[in-house]
């Protein structure tokens, strides 16, 4: 699906605030404490999080919104809860400079915003954080997956999709159905045929 400005894209939801008077798109947002550029994200349950602008750019959805000039006031994210957004913001902070998306940032660089933002390989510490990040129960993992999908954040997507795949790998077919709430709609004969076809994989 195209993520262009004209379509009913998710960034629409972000542009709820009135356009700030006198500010043109692409103008750098406000400066926070210590001269850092920060934006404020607001969860559906009204929790606000101050995020380094460069960290927020890991999300294509947020980047589009910022580039559209709506990074001045708190940016509402009605479909993310406070606890989920807190985790996501922490991951963005830890993934600062992650090459999985930093390359993309360099391409869209505007006004030298990212010049101090050199990509670096994920360290063992980051990998450890990622593991810890997805050590959550099923519903929390699904919340994170949905958040990753909505925010279009490659690093977050990688970490959460990998965790969901790990769950699938460690379960039998029956357990997978139970875990993901899926109904077996095969006839017994069909299922037996499928299992027979690649018997080695089921051993």
């Amino acid at each position: 699906m195209s993520s262009g400005d004209s379509g009913p894209s998710s960034s629409k939801q972000l542009v709820q605030q009135p356009a700030a008077a006198g500010r043109s798109p692409n103008q750098p947002p406000l400066l926070g404490a210590g001269g850092r550029k920060v934006i404020v994200l607001k969860s559906g349950d009204e929790e606000e999080f101050e995020v380094d602008l460069l960290d927020a750019m890991q999300s294509r959805t947020l980047r589009r919104a910022i580039e559209d000039g709506c990074g001045d006031g708190p940016m509402p994210l009605p479909n993310l809860t406070g606890p989920v957004l807190a985790k996501v913001v922490e991951l963005f902070r830890r993934h600062r400079g992650d090459p999985r998306w930093a390359d993309e940032l360099q391409e869209t660089e505007k006004e030298g915003m990212f010049k101090d933002y050199a990509p670096q390989k994920p360290t063992a510490e980051v990998k450890g954080f990622d593991r810890e990040f997805v050590s959550v129960d099923r519903d929390a993992l699904f919340d994170l997956l949905r958040a990753a999908n909505f925010l279009e954040a490659p690093g977050l997507l990688d970490v959460t999709c990998d965790a969901a795949a790990d769950a699938v790998m460690n379960m039998t077919v029956e357990e997978v159905r139970e875990y993901f709430g899926l109904v077996n709609d095969y006839t017994p004969e069909e299922e037996a045929a499928l299992r027979k076809q690649h018997e080695w994989a089921f051993q």
């Binding site: 997978v176 159905r177 299922e191 499928l194 994989a201």
Partner: peptide
């Protein structure tokens, strides 16, 4: 291959 047997 195993996951194909989960559902249609």
């Amino acid at each position: 291959l195993v996951s194909r047997a989960v559902c249609r």
